[in-house]
Design a protein around this nucleic acid. Structure first.
Lengths: 228, 228
DNA sequence: AACGATTGTTACAGCGCCGTGACACGGATC
DNA sequence: GATCCGTGTCACGGCGCTGTAACAATCGTT
């Protein structure tokens, strides 16, 4: 994992409890008591996930979520809502604002961790630092290392992210646009053909291990990673 | 998936929310604030599905839907209506104008995606990435792979789309014109006999698996795919 | 059996997609 | 400031794909 998670919660005890648990799980926790503080933090650095209390003094959680969603820079950040009661109406409105998941208090640390992990995995499986393995290829996000048939492969940053994404989504064709969105980010202006070049560089780096054949071209559609 | 979906909604926040969720689900989203804008977009290229707000400034959603239904070129496009309240009368009128489904606000992203998928499955199954299987033939849109009796079949882009359409609409004769509209696109000028050639290429590619017999000629009418 | 209509089959030219190498630019390092 | 690395873009060339025409084969009808 090793995600940066922003916790927005006005009650100090709960805030402390949550951030403690997150740290235990290996994440970095940023804390904010209200939406204004949170906005400041978000402007400095984008967190990977936001835990947002439903009821906040001043700007409410719902309103804050809506603002995040309306800004191009922040609209891709996953949000998990925290609410005191499991009111059905709240759930509907909460999800309407684009929350990715929902936790009702009181909740156990186990539940918290499970949901955090699930959201991170769903939204960006390549964000987790689980070891990925396809064919004879191994990629370890934690140590940032790639080996092909036990011999080391060295890659540039972009090739690493590209390979990571492909390995976490194998057996599936990805268009150039999808790859740009997922690997480069959806706010980047880059020519589609640039993907080709990085695919080429990736293949070249894999050649010594003969594993470049894992990356297949699907003419007219995109690229696919497959052990066959 | 990978459908092009036109969102017609005058409230920016909701428009943004919807298109964001659609993109997350792998679709391409076109946005319009009102019916006039939407008409322009539709004239350029036909979307695969339209999400239409009930209340619109100027031309109302109902009126707009009626226009789409009265034009030959657009009357086949599936429409999902968005309405603020679940008023029974609105539902009736909405479905009367030919809406395929109905979503009442507030709605969750989950519900949105579920209904979009359901409508696409019903109206344009070749747009979804569900695995299709007819006889011993399997086609997987996600990985872009075709196997006949477990042996791989390789196809060009056009043959792939053609087979996909036929497999999602089996046991049914399609005229050359219909195939051109559905597989090639509606604003493409191609000789009708070109269909024959691609049918031939498809049959040839299927020959090694003896599955070319699935594609049948209906003299004077068109082609049909059937396991018999 | 003969004829016209419809479809099967092949060849070919043109175009577009993709692989590839080269190059310029910017940031980091020293 | 010089150098190096990573990155994005372009241009060129090859090859696969596509549409069309031409001819062969088949079907249905009289």
């Amino acid at each position: 994992m090793a995600a940066t998670i922003l916790v927005i919660e006005d009650e100090p005890a709960i805030q402390e409890l949550i951030s403690y648990n997150l740290k235990q799980a290996g994440h970095q926790a940023l804390k904010a008591d209200n939406a204004e503080q949170a906005l400041n933090l978000v402007q400095n650095a984008l967190p990977d996930l936001i835990l947002l209390d439903w009821m906040l003094p001043g700007i409410s959680g719902v309103e804050f979520a809506r603002r995040l969603r309306s800004d191009k820079r922040t609209k891709a950040i996953p949000i998990i809502m925290l609410t005191a009661r499991s009111e059905e109406q709240d759930k509907l409105t909460g999800l309407e604002t684009g929350a990715d998941d929902y936790i009702t208090k009181p909740f156990s640390p186990r539940e918290l961790n499970a949901r955090v992990k699930a959201v991170l995995r769903r939204r960006a499986p390549q964000m987790t630092d689980d070891l990925v393995q396809v064919g004879g290829l191994k990629l370890d996000p934690a140590s940032h290392r790639v080996t092909g048939n036990a011999t080391p492969v060295d890659l540039g940053p972009t090739e690493f992210r590209l390979l990571h994404f492909l390995m976490t989504h194998p057996e599936r064709v990805h268009s150039r646009t999808q790859l740009l969105d997922q690997v480069w980010g959806d706010h980047v202006f880059v020519e589609e053909r640039t993907v080709d070049v990085h695919i080429r560089r990736l293949r070249k780096a894999l050649e010594p291990t003969a594993l470049d054949s894992l990356i297949q071209t699907v003419r007219g559609t995109g690229y696919r990673l497959s052990p066959n």
